[in-house]
């Protein structure tokens, strides 16, 4: 038994509205790896998680989780995985302790084992003090932590977490990050995490796939992804909208158009050598009588990669639809 996830040409089309939520997605997550699926709302992250965790069937392709086919052997897959969906799944009328014990009993623990496991897990997610209270009275952060404890009951080889920190305050988010790191490092648990937050993927994951509109558009370590778009990043702002647009047009004529992105009043340019090219850029704009309001030179963050990749995609689609 291993903690590997292998996905080949996975796709899912929902009959309702004929929506293709996942399009020919392939990737492998190694045993013990911390892997993140990064993408905006509606990118297909949750659908992928639901397929891999046996909640829904794929319409095409193949997926193996912990050595078992998710479509043909869902019962076996369920034994080895822990899953925290986007919405927590707790019964508000039970106490935290009762719910963990129930979950343990369902996984085949004896009464004594279940009690012991509940005690351990309550400590891990810092809910020992609230263990006897009904979950209906828990705060959102407490529910989330309890939900995480439930996913850990069976000591899963692979943990699936669908946006585990969305909507959490920073202290709860940090508590969850810390616990996920510990599980991955100390127990060797494979973690498949989806997130909309680039900093989350950046700080936790060994490897990231960026998913947009049902397709994986880039995969690599955070460092590789950052290197993929050039070493430096120049951000320019202007005092008027006309100047912004004019500057965008001119820069696109002089360099690879996909390296120039105008968004929310900020013109971002991806370059190889920032210090050298910054001067050239400003000079070029000066010749055209465009006045630059602010200039900022920095190294790209995952945020920038994300922005670049998704805007490239949008552009491609624009061409297709335009024709």
């Amino acid at each position: 038994m291993n903690g590997k996830i292998e996905v080949e040409h996975l796709s899912k089309t929902f009959k309702k509205g004929d929506v293709q939520a996942v399009k020919d997605v392939s990737f492998t997550v190694e045993d013990g790896e911390f892997f993140a699926f990064l993408g905006p709302n509606g990118a297909g992250k949750s659908t992928t998680v639901q397929i891999l965790t046996t909640l829904i069937n794929a319409t095409g392709g193949k997926a193996t989780v912990a050595g078992h086919d998710v479509i043909r052997e869902p019962e076996k897959v369920r034994r080895y995985i822990g899953v925290a969906l986007q919405e927590t799944g707790v019964d508000p009328d039970l106490t935290g302790r009762e719910l963990i014990e129930l979950q343990a009993n369902i996984f085949g623990f004896s009464k004594t084992e279940a009690k012991k496991r509940a005690e351990e897990l309550l400590k891990i997610v810092q809910l020992t003090d609230s263990a006897e209270r009904r979950i209906g009275n828990y705060s959102g952060g407490m529910r989330r932590r309890l939900d995480l404890a439930l996913t850990l009951v069976n000591e899963p080889k692979i943990l699936f977490l669908d946006e585990p920190t969305t909507g959490l305050d920073p202290s709860n988010r940090m508590a969850i990050w810390k616990e996920l790191r510990r599980l991955n490092e100390e127990n060797g648990t494979t973690i498949f995490l989806t997130t909309q937050y680039l900093e989350e993927a950046d700080s936790l994951a060994h490897r990231i796939s960026i998913i947009n509109d049902g397709e994986i558009v880039a995969t690599g370590t955070p460092r590789e992804l950052k290197a993929q778009i050039g070493n430096d990043l120049i951000a320019l702002t202007f005092s008027s909208k006309e100047e912004e647009e004019k500057a965008e047009r001119i820069l696109k004529e002089h360099m690879d158009p996909s390296d120039v992105i105008l968004q929310n009043g900020k013109l971002t340019v991806y370059v190889e050598d920032g210090t050298k090219q910054l001067l050239e850029l400003v000079r070029l704009l000066d010749q055209e009588n465009i006045e630059v309001a602010t200039v900022n030179l920095s190294s790209p963050t995952l945020d920038d990669i994300f922005l670049k990749i998704t805007s490239e995609q949008a552009e491609k689609e624009g061409e297709v639809h335009g024709e």
């Binding site: 909640l55 369920r78 995985i81 969906l85 799944g89 019964d91 508000p92 369902i106 996984f107």
Partner: peptide, 16 residues
């Protein structure tokens, strides 16, 4: 109630 508060899905994710 189970479906609405997500507990139904939680149960579906176990080998129950």
């Amino acid at each position: 109630k189970d479906i609405e508060n997500g507990f139904f899905s939680r149960l579906l994710l176990t080998p129950a």
